[in-house]
């Protein structure tokens, strides 16, 4: 099934995208409100909280280009040394930009 993007088609698509993202923003909260939060569920949430970030970052580092790897490495090192997030992020982005300017 396809939608023509001429006329109102674009707006229909944008609204459909909004409904889907909204459903994910609310869905997790709603499902949790149906589940009794016991110790097991709490431990699951606890284990999951940092893991979301790790799961997002791992493929970036492993499957990404050298620019992506340099960015993450510099961010982690700056963060451990200075504890200043903005400095670490700026350093990381600059590292990616520099590596990607290199020929090759």
């Amino acid at each position: 099934m396809s939608i023509e993007t001429a006329g109102w088609g674009t707006l229909v698509l944008v609204l459909a995208m909004m409904i889907v993202t909204l459903a994910t923003r609310w869905g997790g909260v709603f499902v949790m409100s149906l589940v009794p939060v016991g110790h097991r569920v709490k431990r699951f949430i606890d284990g999951m909280s940092g893991s979301v970030l790790v799961a997002l970052l791992a493929p970036m580092a492993v499957a990404g280009d050298n620019g992506a790897r340099a960015a993450l490495l510099v961010t982690a090192v700056f963060m451990l040394l200075t504890r200043k997030p903005l400095l670490a992020i700026t350093g990381g982005i600059l590292a990616a930009a520099l590596v990607r300017q290199l020929p090759g």
Binding site: T21, W26, G27, G28, V52, L56
Partner: peptide, 8 residues
């Protein structure tokens, strides 16, 4: 991942 955010 928003689902996970809401849950956490």
């Amino acid at each position: 991942r928003h689902l996970l955010m809401g849950a956490t």
